[in-house]
Design a protein around this nucleic acid. Structure first.
Length: 843
RNA sequence: GCCGAAGUGGCGGAACGGUAGACGCAGGAGACUCAAAAUCUCCCGUCCGCAAGGGCGUGCGGGUUCGAAUCCCGCCUUCGGCACCA
């Protein structure tokens, strides 16, 4: 059913010249498009089923959030991807190109609060509207495979994955200060906090901190593997963004012994540094204010100052950003540590420039060689000691330094390692530390574990029961899904509405049978979108999240398309998810998506981001009404580089509309006197056709859509010329008509189908094989030979394509345009590029 | 500040190191039409020139090469990302 080649194989037959009387009507997409959409649906043209005999192709477009109306950005993401999926299908592959809705999330809950509708009602009404709008695109979705992440039969499996992660020690609970949006009243993932001033991604409110017991996934366990992109074809840009996001640093962990203020040894403090070679210059330690050793090291004299500083830091989070130039702040604890290299006592400070979430939450400060430590030392009068010479051997005087010296020379003033050359310093110091047990080489990542708890209603409930006796206990799998109650209230209290529900949370502990309480948080919606590509495989399957037979056939995704904005969130989560599931024995293979391509953003005509308030929004429904979906589809592929996007131009679409109207009339009612074309005209038509087949095929392969359209426009122009010269009714014309419709079918599926039928061709154009290039027909028999003198074009000659080198050079040297530049000079060299040019080098 | 990407006609954009500006928009001239719409033909980087022709041109400055929009070095601008990450 889904294999194009199975059905019609009669495509190479000639297309008969249409009877002129039959073509009086003009191109009317508003009549054609709905008619074919209905027919395709009835005939099940786009059903995708496992077919072991056919090569599969899984094309995936990022599933939309049901926000209300489909906007032009949805069209921009989906239509070119649909065209490419159709191309793969005509190439003979069994293609899966599914659609669904990422239906959980905040906007539904906000709508509920604002308009007093249930989030479910709001969401599903939007989905219904968007389904209708999606159908007007004429996409090749197999609607039987549609998924909605808010359906219990979907989130049952989201919960199932959570339980697997929990059982596999990849989910854990931690009390942690989390980013908190006071307006949305919810915790935010790190990636949802944006900008210099740390605002909420959704509502722009400055973010604060809140200390809550939360669920985390151990993404950091996969940090190293996530840095490896070797098996996948992803854009450089995305790989760079992810690499930075994961942020691998190599260095060493070094232990510093401590003294309690009252005397006696305290617990050792471990620091992380990327410059272990500067250890002899560490003149103090700085702990993050939240560091567990702070209490132990604080002296009675400093207790007040430390307490005040801690208080200030916690409250500061939303004030601090107002300070333009953040001057370093901090207080001494009164405690001391011992530099393991020098044996010196060094003071221990706390300061908020040291982050509790990175490294060990403690640093050794080397003010001479680190700018932040330098600033801190200067501010508080702490000693600065130079321990690395400059590349020129110079050793600066600390008193005269105005900034830290990021020196890369030999070690100085470093005890027994003094004089170690720069190239060896790092390794020698690491070895030195390891021999003495003071430290070891270590790697640290910027990536943090994924916080998945949300204090919201409209999400998948976390399937855990908190039991006073047993702690957090997994809900048994056969009790899934834990469904959301309908009768809830949305009060922006900062608590999950589930917590406010009178009965929902009360249950019994699955382990001991005693009274227990359900976890009242729901999961981050990135959880839903981390595995939706698997649910498409078998959306009704009830023995697991997906049918293994479908998985084995379709996975991995061959081409994944969507916006670049997901580079560091969704696209890291879904890779993590897949790798974790692989290790849990749920999935196979290392990566879920083989090839990734990102489309750009369409801006308003004023080159600004589209927004209702600016009044520059382009409404696709209005465009479809005016031009038809095919024109909109083709124009979206044509008007800009897909990966780049750009400003919309309402005039530009006229050109695309003109082209499709011309194709319509050209094929149904070609001008000129049929059958009177010369051999030359017919050969030229055939040459252009086969060049176009080659070009369009190559451009689909490299996902470059704008040149697909321009090539087809050129072909239409050539067909128009040939028709004027009497090509209609010839074999060449029939071949061009048939092949050009098949080339057009992915872009303008309705128009191509309608013309295919009107020309009396059997079956659906969408079941035809992709045209093959005839290299001989595509070859030029004459070429333009460019004649250059010293690299400047001086003449252009028309010569036979197979011209010999000798003949080409002879003609070039005799060329009229070149002659005057060759008179009276010596020819030093002649460069010949076959089929292109002769460059005469003279001196 | 650091990292990344991009700079080509009035505009969107083409161009395996080999004819810069394909294709389209806008603009100009004309045809058809009572008229309009639609359609068709031609012109359209810039400077000099009646023309033939020539000079200059892919952000700026260098370099490599017979030959550079394309490769290398250094700048400038724009747009993204990160931001006290030890």
């Amino acid at each position: 059913m889904s294999r194009p080649r199975d059905t019609d194989s009669s495509t190479e037959t000639a297309v008969p010249a249409p009877p002129r009387a039959a073509v009086a009507d003009a191109y009317d997409p508003s009549e054609i498009e709905p008619r074919w959409q209905r027919r395709w649906e009835e005939e099940g043209l786009y059903r995708s089923d496992v077919d072991p005999a056919a090569e599969k192709h899984y094309a995936l477009t990022m599933l939309p959030y049901p926000s209300g109306d489909l906007h032009i950005g949805h069209w921009y993401a989906i239509c070119p991807a649909d065209a490419r999926a159709r191309y793969e299908r005509m190439r003979g592959k069994n293609v899966l190109f599914p659609i669904g809705f990422d239906a959980f999330g905040l906007p539904a809950e906000n709508a509920a609060i604002q308009r007093n509708v249930h989030p479910r009602e709001w969401t599903y009404a939007n989905i219904e509207r968007m389904r209708r709008q999606l159908r007007t695109m004429g996409p090749m979705f197999d609607w039987r495979r549609e998924i909605v992440s808010a359906d219990p039969e979907y989130y049952r499996w989201t919960q199932w994955f959570f339980l697997r992660f929990f059982a596999g020690d990849l989910a854990y609970r931690k009390r942690a200060a989390v980013d908190w949006c006071p307006s949305c009243n919810t915790t935010l993932a790190r990636e949802q906090v944006v900008g210099d001033d740390r605002r909420c991604e959704r509502c722009d409110t400055p973010v604060t901190k809140k200390d809550l017991e939360q669920w985390f996934f151990r993404t950091t366990r996969y940090a190293e593997e996530l840095l490896d992109f070797s098996g996948i074809d992803w854009p450089e840009r995305v790989r760079t963004l992810q690499t930075h996001w994961i942020g691998r640093s190599e260095g060493a962990r070094i232990a510093f012994a401590t003294e309690r203020p009252g005397g006696g040894a305290g617990s050792a403090i471990e620091v992380f540094t990327t410059r272990p070679d500067t250890l002899w210059g560490a003149t103090f330690l700085v702990l993050a204010p939240e560091h567990p050793a702070v209490a132990e090291l604080t002296s009675p004299e400093q207790a007040d100052a430390v307490a005040r500083y801690l208080d200030q830091t916690l409250r500061q989070t939303d004030v601090q950003r107002e300070a333009a130039d953040r001057e370093k702040t901090g207080v001494p604890t009164g405690g001391f540590a011992v530099n393991p290299a020098t044996g010196e006592r060094v003071p221990v400070w706390i300061a908020d420039y040291v982050l509790t979430t990175y490294g060990t939450g403690a640093i050794m400060a080397v003010p001479a060689h680190d700018q932040r430590d330098f600033d801190f030392a200067r501010r508080f009068g702490l000693p600065i000691r130079v321990v690395v010479a400059g590349e020129d051997g110079a050793v600066p005087d600390p008193a005269a330094m105005s900034e830290a010296a990021p020196s890369q020379g030999a070690l100085v003033d470093s005890g027994e390692l003094t004089g170690t050359p720069a190239a060896d310093a790092y390794e020698r110091v690491c070895a030195w530390l390891e021999e003495r047990g003071h430290g070891r080489r270590a790697v640290t990542y910027r990536l943090r574990d994924w916080l998945i708890s949300r204090q919201r209603y409209w999400g998948a409930p976390i399937p855990i029961v908190h039991c006073p006796a047993c702690g957090p206990v997994a809900v048994p799998e056969d009790e899934l899904p834990i469904t959301l109650p309908d009768d809830v209230e949305w009060r922006p209290t900062g608590e999950s509405p589930l917590k406010l529900h009178p009965t929902w949370r009360h249950t019994t502990c699955p382990r001991c049978g005693g009274p227990g309480e359900r976890d009242t948080d729901t999961m981050d919606t990135f959880m839903d979108s981390s595995w939706y590509h698997l649910r498409y495989l078998s959306p009704r399957f009830d023995q697991g999240p997906f049918d293994p037979a479908e998985y084995d056939y379709w996975m991995p995704v061959d081409v994944y398309t969507g916006g670049i904005e997901h580079a560091t969130m969704h696209l890291i989560y879904t890779r993590f998810f897949h790798k974790a599931c692989r290790d849990l024995g749920v999935t196979a293979g290392d990566e879920p998506m083989r090839k990734l391509r990102n489309q750009g953003i369409i801006l308003g005509e004023d080159s600004e981001k589209m927004s209702k308030s600016r009044g520059n929004v382009v409404a696709p429904d209005a465009l479809v009404e005016r031009y038809g979906a095919d024109t909109v589809r083709a124009h979206l592929m044509f008007f800009a580089r897909w990966e780049q996007g750009g400003p919309w131009s309402s005039g530009g679409i006229e050109g695309t509309a003109r082209w499709l109207r011309r194709v319509w009339s050209l094929l149904l009612d070609p001008p000129g006197d049929a059958g009177t074309a010369s051999d030359e005209t017919r050969r030229r038509l055939r040459r252009k056709l086969h060049q176009a087949i080659g070009a369009v095929t190559a451009d689909f392969e490299r996902v470059q859509f704008n040149t697909v359209v321009s090539t087809l426009m050129e072909l239409a122009n050539e067909m128009g010329r040939a028709a004027q010269e009497g090509a209609a009714g010839t074999d060449e014309w029939a071949e061009a008509a048939s092949a050009s419709l098949r080339l057009l079918a992915p872009l303008a599926p309705h128009l191509a189908e309608e013309l295919w039928h009107r020309l009396g061709q059997p079956g659906s154009v969408h079941r035809q094989p992709w045209p093959e290039t005839d290299a001989e027909a595509a070859a030029e028999d004459e070429i333009t030979l460019v004649v250059q003198v010293n690299g400047k074009v001086r003449d252009r000659l028309t010569v036979p394509a197979g011209v010999s080198r000798e003949e080409a050079e002879r003609r070039a040297l005799a060329a009229e345009g070149a002659r005057k530049f060759l008179a009276g000079v010596t020819v030093r060299k002649v460069v010949y590029v076959p089929g292109r040019l002769v460059n005469v080098v003279v001196g």
